[in-house]
């Protein structure tokens, strides 16, 4: 997905995990995933560099669709679709 497509997605939930370190963003994403329905989209903000690698791996393992990442100046926005 392109950056514009990602930014245009309708997200069901947004979790701001900026300012937390490993495994904070992962745990925040897991918790937020529990509150949305299958097929809905979760957006995760993280300022932790490692999360960019971790979240796609976690999605793959858990069966969620990792849609992509939008890089902002001091953080990343990741888009995940619940399986």
């Amino acid at each position: 997905m392109t950056t514009d497509e990602l930014k245009g997605l309708k997200v069901a939930s947004l979790v701001d995990a900026r300012g937390t370190a490993c495994p904070g963003p992962l745990l925040a994403a897991k918790k937020a995933m529990g509150d949305i329905e299958s097929g809905e989209i979760l957006e995760v903000y993280s300022s932790d560099e490692g999360t960019k690698v971790d979240i796609p791996k976690w999605c793959q393992k858990m069966g969620h669709d990792y849609l992509g990442v939008v890089e902002e100046s001091s953080y990343v926005r990741m888009f995940l679709k619940k399986s």
């Binding site: 490993c22 495994p23 992962l26 745990l27 994403a29 897991k30 976690w58 393992k61 858990m62």
Partner: peptide, 8 residues
């Protein structure tokens, strides 16, 4: 341990 919990 807490990371593994995120993996259910």
């Amino acid at each position: 341990a807490t990371g593994a919990a995120a993996y259910d």
